[in-house]
Design a protein around this nucleic acid. Structure first.
Lengths: 208, 208
DNA sequence: AATAAACATGAATACTGATTCATGTTTCAT
DNA sequence: ATGAAACATGAATCAGTATTCATGTTTATT
């Protein structure tokens, strides 16, 4: 149901009119940023278009120049979050040729990112109810990357044998849960300590 | 703001009128069961009182005889879920005097439970947005139990040393994530296989 | 059998909030 | 400089739905 017959279409993912001037560009960005703050703090349902536009400093109708529905801004935020997290972790694990070292660095980067962006974290969680497809894509993309890393590491003899898929989900679960403890349950445990304990478990758990 | 001054109050947690006859008892139960199905499948916001009562086969007004607000049924479902899960796991880990054996049995029981009650699983997740207090209580209660088990096992020399709190959240995260893969991402991987892989990771991760 | 308390009904209330639209204002290519 | 396209406005529309309430029915107790 993505393409209508015959006509070649834009390969973009965004719906709604994209801005065509610098002014429009700025406005769209302002709305998106406001949506992140408002939805992140109040939740999807309590975040009204009115709240978002007033936070962005524009009129209510302006919202619909750039987005077709409330749900659409939300999806866009989830996509953005995915790109950001993957980028952050890729950055942090750059240059480690040993999987286990990369694992530790990735966990640390993830926790730091989550602590710095509690809003986006909540938004992704809420996507399970607001936009299940976006939620699935987020985690499946993440899991796929994780899995292929594990497969490679196993082939290189850097970790023991074991089903990479289940391992990927288990390791993601550890990170997600520790991140949640940090931002949802407001733990004040220092990140390095958390990483030490968790990494020790992981390292023993999957080393050759 | 829980108690008004002076007067002794009921030590119960439930709000709203409790039924006083068998008939009322049955009606209340029917509404609760309907709420579980409807909220579990449509999500909190799309599940209207009308949907719930019609699913329960009663009039809309009847809802307010037993519950004060829509949020209240929801909270009650979350509480029920917590009791059920803890009971299930306590049952399953009964009789193992070794923590590691108990760990494996608990993981298996959890995954089986989640697969059998996908609705309740989603409800607990949604609680983060609908009723954060209930959500926190759910996980903190769970984590506290987990942690004390780990502390005891460590004292008994059944597992290696390590911060029990962080370990508890990490292990909970593994279970939660694998459960999610099962019911949200509809994986068809057999539970015993999942348990084998995950347990192997955990066992190596925390054994003495 | 009679009466009060419980229980049940469903239409009416009351409000919220997403989306539309007719009307202006600004930007930009020519 | 000027007209068309972009952009912006905010009041009005429109629908959904949580909660209330006046009225009726059932149950338990005497």
């Amino acid at each position: 149901m993505r393409k209508s017959a015959g006509v070649a279409e834009v390969p973009q993912k965004v719906q709604g009119n994209l801005p065509k001037t610098a002014r429009g560009e700025a406005t769209r960005r302002a709305i998106l940023a406001a949506a992140e703050r408002v939805i992140g703090s109040k939740g999807y349902n309590d975040a009204s278009i009115g709240h978002i536009t007033s936070e962005a400093g524009v009129a209510q109708g302006t919202f619909y120049i750039y987005f077709t529905t409330k749900e659409q801004v939300f999806s866009e935020l989830v996509l953005e979050m995915g790109r950001l997290v993957r980028h952050e972790i890729a950055e942090a694990t750059q240059g480690y040729e040993n999987r286990l070292d990369a694992e530790r660095a990735g966990l640390k980067a993830f926790l730091e990112f989550v602590q710095a962006h509690p809003d986006l974290y909540r938004i992704v969680q809420e996507a399970l109810f607001v936009d299940p497809d976006a939620y699935q894509e987020y985690y499946e993309t993440f899991a796929a990357g994780y899995k292929s890393g594990l497969v490679a590491a196993e082939a290189a003899g850097q970790i023991s044998e074991g089903d990479a898929d289940t391992r990927a989900w288990a390791l993601m679960g550890i990170a997600k849960s520790l991140g949640e403890q940090l931002v949802v349950f407001k733990s004040d445990k220092p990140i390095p300590d958390i990483v030490e304990t968790a990494y020790s478990l992981i390292e023993r758990g999957i080393r050759p």
